[in-house]
Design a protein around this nucleic acid. Sequence first.
DNA 1: CATATTTGACCGAC
DNA 2: GTCGGTCAAATATG
Length: 318
Amino acid sequence: MEMSGGGGRVVVELSQIKDLVRQLEGHLGGSQTQEHCRLLASQISSLTERSISLITSYCSLDGGWKRPAADAAAPSPLSDASDAPFKATKKRKMTEKLKERVSSAAGSDVPADDGHSWRKYGQKEILGAKHPRGYYRCTHRHSQGCAATKQVQRADEDPALFDVFYIGTHTCVQSGGAAAAAGQAAAAAQAPEHNPGVHTLLQSLSSSLTVKTEGLIAAPDQEAPQGWAATAPFCLSSTPASGWCPGPERSPFCAPSTSENWGAAPATSDSNQHASCSFPPFELIAGDVQFEFSEVMSALVDVPSEFHDDFDIASFFS
DNA sequence: CATATTTGACCGAC
DNA sequence: GTCGGTCAAATATG
């Protein structure tokens, strides 16, 4: 497999993403049409997707990433998929998880709404964690047999942050919600210069985006599309290039819908702040490694181009 | 009343 | 036995 090649491509593509973000940023106060902004957003989306696919396939190459001590006590069941994806130890059904670190906005106790309707079905104290973990499943589990679940846990280090694990894919068709999100996205596009949501988006993408990987995917068949389709955790409201973000479905990065509860913490009034388009900082987990997107970005930009092909992405995380 | 949340019990994997 | 995930009855909320 193409280890260094993958890393190089990631570098290039992430750099492109950054450029696109800058362009989009520049257009916010400018005279560009919303079409142009959408196009840029679309490009950002597909590039990001591809980069993440590369990263995750890279991560799944076993040993490519360091293993933080954090997992020493409990080796991640998700990280060893390189040898046998669904091996004998059918431990907790080797599901793909995507971890996202969501900041609660403005000191709120609630992570931003991810656009789906969730119903809490449990909460557990987790060994070694300061805060309990909340278990959520899709509201349409019974009506539509949607199997998507998520787990929400307040970060130890920073109570303002939440770690959210998305497990499984939404098979439900959200009635009002998707339309609402589309409307919100459209609204955001219509008045970008007056829409803090768009700025939030951009800031998230270009600076506060936190990417973290850990034991994710390890798609048996090298490429990630399927793995990502199964989790499909984020897309930028634009049409996904490869169709992994199914139709009306929305992602954690899409605008929140109505007033769905969001988590263990009691809902406060801040949900309105994100009514347009909120892209909270997030992190990906795919191989027990975490890294700040902004760090990667700035570092990547500094990497001499002749370095790209040999670029060892793991060096960022050590 | 319907729907959502809480919380202890339960279960399977280690 | 412990632990993490889920179930389901009780409770809360609108």
